[in-house]
Structure formats: C-alpha cells, structure tokens
C-alpha cells in the first residue's frame, strides 16, 4: 500500500479565513456512518456549504466559482476537535492536496500527512498577506516545492518546516504501516525485553 507521492504543486487556492475550524465543520458526525474511505468530499463543510434543504449557500467559498484549486488556505487552529480521519479523507476526496494555516491541531496534522495531504504551517503575518493577495486576485497561483520546503507566490517565499521522516514518506509515497511492518523483529524483541523486567 502507498499514499500518493507529493513533490511539487502549482495551483490557485481557496481561502477560508475562519479561525478554529473544527473537524465537526469539516465533516459533521452524521456523515461518519460509512465503512469505506470514499465519497466524503461530497459532504466537506456540509453545513456551511448547503442549507437544510440541500441547496448551496451562495456566499460560502466552495460555492463561489471564482475560487478553485488544490490548495485550501485556512485561518488559525485548523482541524481542532475530533480525531476523525474522515476530515482528512473529505479534504483529499474533494481534491485538496495542501492545507495552509498559521496553526494546526495535532491529530488533524497527522491524519492529513497519512493521506498524502500536506499541511503547511506559516507565520500569522505570511497568512494575512496571503489572504490579502487572494482577495486582490482570486486566481492567485501558489507554488509548493516539498523538496526545498518552499511555498511561494509572486515575490513572496516562505520556508516551511516538516519532519524529515514525513517528508521522505510524502516524496516517495511511503506509508508508515509498511515501515512499521518492516520493524516486526524489533517489536518482538521489545516485547520480550519487557517480560524480563
């Protein structure tokens, strides 16, 4: 098994400046009844995106045709709350490859990485400027170079951090589970050593 490789992306983006976007907003609990990983994109941001009769809410960004792309730019503390990986599945299934924010909740960050979605944490200042740039030019393109750990648009460049192990995984499409399965002997030894204490 493997996740999609991620090396370089150039794309326009979708701005969502709200802060503290929790995973209940990303995918409400009533859509967690599936037993497969597919199709969650349909209900991404369901209650912000559609009204109670299922009609699109016009002023929500995913319903505004002038914004599109594979990058979601979100306000501070994105992905807080529930550990539901369905949130990351919904974001990936909708077609986002990157989420940019000035702050991510821990579990969401791991879940995104485990599904080939790159969470990029930027400074609050950079994020603010980026929102301004997107507001000026709705089709503002961003480039993301994972090898160089660079996020750029126009003359602006942000050097982002990523755990070197996770970076290797994404660049090569490796999967943590394969890595762990290769360590079975070591895990056995650990279990044995604990019995002796």
């Amino acid at each position: 098994m493997s996740v999609d490789k991620f090396t370089y992306l150039e794309s326009s983006c979708v701005p969502l400046p709200n802060e503290n976007v929790d995973t209940d907003q990303i995918i409400p609990a009533r859509f967690l009844k599936a037993t497969s990983r597919d199709g969650f994109g349909e209900n991404l941001f369901r209650d912000w995106r559609f009204d109670s009769s299922g009609d699109p809410i016009k002023d929500f960004v995913l319903n505004q045709p002038e914004y599109s792309g594979q990058v979601l730019v979100a306000g501070k503390n994105f992905g807080s709350g529930s550990s539901r990986e369905h949130a990351a599945w919904a974001i990936a299934d909708y077609g986002f490859k990157v989420v940019i924010s000035s702050f991510f909740a821990d579990i969401f960050r791991n879940n995104a990485l485990n599904n080939g979605v790159l969470p990029i944490q930027v400074s609050a200042e950079f994020l603010e400027k980026l929102f301004e740039a997107i507001e000026k030019d709705h089709s503002q393109k961003l480039s993301i170079d994972l090898e160089k750990q660079e996020l750029s648009y126009k003359d602006e460049v942000f050097q982002f951090e990523i755990n070197p192990y996770k970076k290797t995984c994404l660049l090569n499409g490796f999967d943590d589970i394969d890595y762990l399965i290769d360590k079975k002997t070591k895990i056995h030894d650990f279990e044995e050593s604990r019995l002796k204490v």
Partner: peptide, 13 residues
Amino acid sequence: GIGTSEVEMVFAT
C-alpha cells in the same frame, strides 16, 4: 486519540 490510519498501524504492529 488517533486517526484511522494509526488504528491500522496498531492493528498491524
């Protein structure tokens, strides 16, 4: 708390 991919890791190893 962990995500489902991590649940699978614990199942496997």
